[in-house]
Amino acid sequence: SKHLVLLDLLALLLVTEAKSDVAATMLRTNGSMKFFYSKNRPFTDSENKYVRTLFNYASETNRSVADRYTNLMAAIVDKCQKKIKSRISKVLRRVRELSTDRGIHSEDRLPLELVEKLKAKLGIGPEQSLKNRLISWLDYLSPAQRLKDPEFLRYAIVTAHSIGIPSDINLLIDQKLLRRIRKLGDYMGAVTQLVGEVDLLPPQVLQTLVIQEVPPPPPDRIVIEKTSVEIVEQWARNRHIEEPTETNLRIQFPSLPQPLSQQNTITRSVHCECTLITKIVDDLVQQGTSPLVTLEVGVSKSLCNLCEVFMGSVKKRYPNITIMVSTHHGKNVSGWRLPPLTPLEISREVEDHINSCIEEIRCKAT
């Protein structure tokens, strides 16, 4: 699980645009090391260059660790700034939801010894109050014009990281706020982990490290001309079973959007975890590898329902391959697509699942 956390963190570094939590990473060891990464769309040349830069900076073992951190942070702040800004905004949004003390509790109720320990960890002098110091940091984050300054972004990340590390800090900070601070600090967490992992590699492995994108087919756009109600009705009619009425469907599923006059344009893409798993499994099968293999896939996003089903089906087909992915929130997304050349039994299983979802909807409504 520690390894998966690391992979999830590394995946975060590859999310170069806000609102596109799509990166995934994969490490494989068997004497050599291969690092594969993918998004829901092919990487641009500049993004691929950025990934190489990250690894080059991380592996400059002749430089001091501090220098490597600085170089990495500069590259990340430059390339991921939209996402970083959105994480800062999320911290500030929570601050605004809270009362005037901004969700920072008084340290008076904590044992003195613990307060001293926390102060030392955060570099706060004995005469200063922990609470005031945290509040002044949150206030410093607020003015929006600072978001343009890379140095400010770097500072915000580094401080958020050090605030989020001590486990006892949860006694002082509103839990939701702390979660958001920690997410901001994850960038620094990823940098320290990356440098740490690279330092563990023997030099000969470092020299032969493979870092490679696994591109999915480019996303395409399709138009859905029917409403969801029509789709469920048509599905039932086709099977000669009872059709739900629109009223029934709307009573049962109040969140169903009202039909729009215009058509729905959907972007279809192969999700990154499916692309990676397909590639690695294909490689293993071609090599004729039969011993037990564990694939750990780090993701910067939650797994969607269909990816989960896809993975379950792959696991069933290749019982000697264990696939581990850390997050799952079971969202249903539109535009999900099977990887090209998916074996028939896997695509059938995914299709069966989709049919059973529609049947469940129909049953509830009828």
């Binding site: 399709i222 859905i224 029917k226 969801s228 789709i231 469920v232 048509q234 599905w235 009619r237 086709n238 469907l249 599923f253 969140s255 169903l256 959007p257 729905n264 959907i266 279809r268 269909l306 249903n332 997304v333 539109s334 535009g335 999900w336 299709e351 989709i354 049919n355 979802c357 529609i358 909807i361």
Partner: peptide, 16 residues
């Protein structure tokens, strides 16, 4: 009548 396509079904599920 042709059955709904997979894309259409995925779309319907995502809305419900």
């Amino acid at each position: 009548e042709v059955p709904p396509t997979l894309d259409e079904m995925i779309f319907a599920i995502s809305q419900i």
